[in-house]
């Protein structure tokens, strides 16, 4: 089981969280013509990297906040967590 450091509640067990997908996907800008391909990429297309990856997690059985987690998809090591308003560099 992973232990994830929620930016609001501290270190908690994975049981309290829900995985929310890739945190690097950017929604196409509003009020601009969006091609079908661009929209398709945003909605469906995801990379599946091996190694460091920034993900969204939801502390669903805790403070109910979304936040970012930088995790190694091969080793499951967690490097950093950050609030949605913060960047992971």
């Amino acid at each position: 089981m992973l232990h994830i450091n929620c930016p609001f509640c501290g270190l908690r067990a994975q049981k309290e969280f829900a995985y929310g997908g890739d945190a690097t996907v950017k929604r196409p800008e509003i009020n601009r013509e969006v091609s079908k391909e661009e929209w398709d990429n945003f909605v469906y297309m995801r990379k599946s990297p091996r190694g460091k990856h920034i993900e969204l997690w939801h502390h669903i059985s805790g403070c109910r906040q979304w936040f970012k987690v930088q995790r190694d998809t091969a080793t499951h090591e967690i490097f950093k967590t950050a609030k949605m308003s913060e960047e992971i560099v």
Partner: peptide
């Protein structure tokens, strides 16, 4: 799964108990 030994009077926390939030 909460580390309950760190918590005491005046604390509160959300967690799960046998998968119940």
């Amino acid at each position: 799964p909460l580390n309950i030994n760190e918590l005491g009077e005046g604390d509160c926390s959300n967690s799960v108990f046998h998968a119940i939030t």
